[in-house]
């Protein structure tokens, strides 16, 4: 029988713990495929976050470090500085990266650390049960804003790509969405470009992936993907924000 699809060898055999309809699995697969295509096997260290992807160290088939909440870019900086010829990537969610870890991500970016950061933006704290995230949309409901995010009380959502693109250190900043095959293919291309920037030591590379969280959004998978395509993409437009 002909092999038509094969799991990337950059993923372990450990089954994902993610909820049905969650797009973390797709993001993992894309990162693993890109690493494999770039010949990074045996040549890469990944950094896992705190949040839903906390167990990422079980899934990526490479040396991994588990960072404290928000500190993945600092940990990745430490690794890359002593292993400058290895690929180093951090994989973070929106609470980890855009809230508690804001200082670390901004400074790793402005230093132009030659690392790649994959940023999963699903506009919610998933692991802790659906609290408001820094990227939660205006009006979007969460367990800590049950009537919907009210900017008067809760402030406004943060646009990370736009923010980081103002800095000199990054060489590649892009936002994709994991909503449909076409967007998934585009997202993979973005991830590949990001790692190529790292390979060429061009600068800090960053890919934000708009993702769905049907569990905490209280939606079906289809509704959740539709919400990403409509509401989320309106606030967080897709595209390349910086490329040098």
């Amino acid at each position: 029988m002909a092999v038509v699809y094969k799991k990337s060898k950059m993923l372990t055999d450990t089954p994902f713990h993610y909820c049905p309809g969650c797009t973390h699995g797709i993001a993992h697969k894309l990162v693993a495929e890109v690493l494999e295509e770039m010949g990074a096997e045996g040549n890469v260290v990944g950094v896992a976050p705190v949040g839903c992807a906390v167990f990422a160290y079980k899934y990526f088939n490479c040396d991994m470090q588990e960072a404290a909440h928000g500190r993945a870019p600092a940990v990745a900086t430490g690794i890359k500085r002593v292993l400058p010829d290895k690929f180093v990537f951090a994989y973070q969610g929106d609470g980890d990266l855009a809230s508690i870890g804001m200082a670390e991500i901004v400074h790793a970016a402005t230093r132009g650390e030659k690392i790649t950061v994959i940023f999963i933006n699903n506009a919610i704290y998933g692991m802790t049960g659906g609290q408001m995230a820094p990227t939660t949309l205006e009006g979007q409901k969460a367990t800590t804003c049950i009537y919907g995010r009210n900017p008067e009380v809760n402030g406004h959502p943060i646009k990370m790509c736009e923010l980081l693109a103002t800095l000199t250190g990054p060489s590649y900043i892009a936002r994709g969405a994991l909503t449909d095959p076409a967007n998934v293919r585009k997202a993979k291309k973005m991830i590949k470009t990001a790692f190529e920037h790292q390979a060429q030591k061009k600068g800090f590379s960053f890919v934000e992936l708009l993702s769905s969280c049907p569990t905490n959004w209280g939606m079906t998978t289809e509704q959740a993907l539709e919400y990403v395509k409509t509401d989320m993409q309106k606030l967080y437009p897709l595209g390349v924000f910086k490329e040098v």
Binding site: Q65, A68, R71, I79, K80, V82, E104
Partner: peptide
Amino acid sequence: VAAINMVYGAAGAG
């Protein structure tokens, strides 16, 4: 905070 986590990364990398 970042400095000690950089130590974590670098020490973890040997």
